[in-house]
Structure formats: C-alpha cells, structure tokens
Design a protein around this nucleic acid. Structure first.
Lengths: 208, 208
DNA sequence: GTCTATAGTATGATAGAC
DNA sequence: GTCTATCATACTATAGAC
C-alpha cells in the first residue's frame, strides 16, 4: 500500500525538492504539480499563490531550526569566553536537527536559504524577520560581544559578506561538490562544506 | 546637437544599465529597446540573440579589466614577499581603469559580474574561461604561493566563498548601501564596500 | 477537493514590407 | 537597417463542472 499522503503534503514535498534543486523562480507550478501527481489548480486552492507556497516550504524548516538556534545561543551566552568560531559552530546543532524534517533536511534547508536570498524574495525576508527576528538580533549581539574591536560598520558589512559566502556555497553547492569530487577524488558531503566554511568566515570576521 | 550614437551602442548602453540594475533574466528585450529608443527587432538584427547581447555587454568591460589585472599580477610576482591582502588590493587598479569605459564603470562591472554568477549563465562562464582563463590561472597560482599552508581542497572552497561574498555584496549592493547609509548616517560609496571586503576575504583565506 | 479548460499576460524570436 | 505585425511558447491564476 502506498502511503496516503494529503495533496497539501504532496505539493510541499514536490515543491521542496524542485525549489532546492532549481530555485524558486526557475520552478513553475506546472513542474511542481506534475512531480506531485496532483492537479495544477490545487496549488492555488491549498496555498492561494506561489508566494504563499514558497513561504510554507520554508516554514517547515524555520520552525524547527530557529528555536534550536536560540537555545544554542543561550548556551553560548553562559560561557565565560565568547569566541567567534565557537558561535558559528553552534549552527551545526540546529542544522542537524533538520534531519527530523527530512533525511536530507540540512542540505535542503541551506540551499533553499541560498535561493531565498539570491533571488530577491522580499516577502520571505519580511516573514523571517517577523517570525524569527529576535533570534537573529540575539546572534548579532553575541557576535558583537565576541568582536569588540569591530565598529558597527565593519560588523554590518562582514555579516553580509558571510551571508554571501554561505549562500553562494549552497546555491552553487552541488555543482561545486561535483567539481571538488572529480578534482580531489574524494567523496564530499554537504557537511564538509560547512566545516570548510566555518573557519573561513570566522577568520574573515575577526580580521583586524 | 545630440550625439549621434549608433543603434548598436544605444542598445549596449541601455542593456548595461538595466542588466546592472535588475539582472539579466529580469530584464526583457522590450525594456531594453524601449529604454534605448530603438525597435524591438534590432537586438536580434545586431546581436543575434539575448545571450549574445549579454556577452557583448560584459565584453566591453572584460577586455579592459583583464589585461590590466594580468599586468598587476606580474608586478606582484616580482615582489620578494607575496602577501594575500597585497594580491587582493591589486584588483583595485584594473577596477579603477573601468572608469574609462564609463564613469560608473567599476560599480557596473561588479554588479554585472554578480548577476553573471548568481543567475546561472553557463555561456558567460564558458566565454570568460575561454578568453581570459590564463589570467585566472595566474591569480590562482599566486594565491597558492602566498598561502602554502592551505591544501588544494581548502583553497578550492575558500576561493568560492570569496567569490560568493564579493558577488553577494555587489548584487545586494545598492540595497545594502542604502541600509548602511541610513544606519550610519554616512555616505557610502561602492569603493568603500571594496575596502571593507578586502580585509575580510584576506582574513578568511589565510585562516589556519 | 479535484478536475478541465481557459483567461490574461509576458517572453524571445522572426518574416516581410519599406 | 529599421519597422510592424505576429508566431510560438511559457507562465500564474481562476471560473465552473463534477
């Protein structure tokens, strides 16, 4: 017996797969409904619009990720010493938690996040800020404490550079991983990319 | 007397303005021809296709930028000590040279480059590699010499992170600059962003 | 809830008169 | 070289039968 999955879930699953592979704008409702094996019109029936569907796909991950990140930030705060790399390493815990949503959850989420920022998804930014703004504010506060030598402006730009590096790594991720594999004859996992990224962004942020 | 500009140039100028503001895919041939004050069909008459037009827009900058970059790399090579930040600073010279193409040339070029990589423009990558691959190989060789403590894999990933940070800064550039201005009550120029970027990527690349 | 059919809009490209 | 007119195609979204 095939599992009985609601049309809503079928749409979410198909959309997630295609969005994370090709991006939001590059994926049409036709592709999604075909992949999901449901009717074209059902997207608008269940979600109202493509934008709302995008938000729903992201939300499944954000509602898991953000609370765990906040938890980790609070743990970090209790430590006597607050080191940049330590803070970034804490991202690995909420990321790992996403395997509960989907076996490939961490990869998928990071790629979705990449597309969310590289394509200009104003509505997503607004939604994230509204729902999880406090967590992001908390992160910023801790990074400032760990890097008192940076002024506001340096911090502002470097955080955006970090975001850019992370986003780019994920969006170009699969292509890059394949290049890396053929070049180094080693299997490369998405997790390895994170491990490469953390010292890079830490070094960049701390630089005097 | 209005300057007599050829239709080709009118198209190139309008396309450049719109591409650098909105990206390649977000800009339609109809917008371009309207902005240029020429007929819709003339793009295909003069350039053959939208892809070819994109390439022509980029080429105007690349043919100026790349030779000057190569010149700078050769100068760097003659120095006894080869420092990472020194290498990245050398990018400022070929960038500044782009004011000869257009007063806003450096900004425009960096934004175009950003879109070229964030949207997946396979044909552009191929073109750049074909025409200017040797310069990029040279840069890679020097960065390796300046950072002998990094293995191939670390170097590979960090270069892509750097690309991501740079691209993101440019593509989100105008929006970010506006945020920065309102937040810091200071005028921010594109040049300032470069100055912020250089120590960040240098610190990130060198990190042990 | 799910379907077909289609409205309404936008795109890149081209044929053919001038 | 430049124009008008139009083709062929893709998209999101919705109306209305079942």
């Amino acid at each position: 017996m095939a599992a009985r999955i609601s049309t809503q879930k079928k749409i979410l699953n198909a959309a997630e797969m295609l969005f994370s592979r090709d991006g939001f704008e590059q994926t049409s409702l036709r592709q999604i409904t075909q992949e999901a094996g449901v009717n074209l019109a059902s997207v608008n029936y269940h979600f109202g619009s493509k934008k709302a569907l995008i938000q729903a796909v992201m939300a499944r991950y954000l509602v898991v990720f953000m609370p765990v990140l906040e938890e980790q930030l609070q743990l970090a705060e209790q430590q006597s010493e607050l080191k940049t790399e330590e803070l970034f390493k804490r991202f690995k815990i909420p990321l790992a938690k996403l395997t509960e949503v989907n076996k490939q959850g961490p990869d998928i989420f990071l790629r979705l996040l990449g597309f969310a920022y590289s394509e200009i998804q104003g509505h997503l930014r607004k939604y994230t800020q509204q729902e999880f703004g406090s967590v992001l504010q908390h992160l910023l506060a801790l990074l400032k404490r760990a890097n008192p030598h940076l002024d506001e402006q340096q911090m502002f730009w470097r955080l955006h550079f970090i975001l850019g590096a992370a986003v780019f790594a994920q969006v170009s991720g699969q292509a890059l991983i394949e290049i890396a594999q053929s070049e180094f004859n080693e299997k490369v996992e998405a997790q390895d990319v994170i491990d490469q990224l953390i010292p890079f962004v830490s070094g960049g942020l701390e630089e005097a």
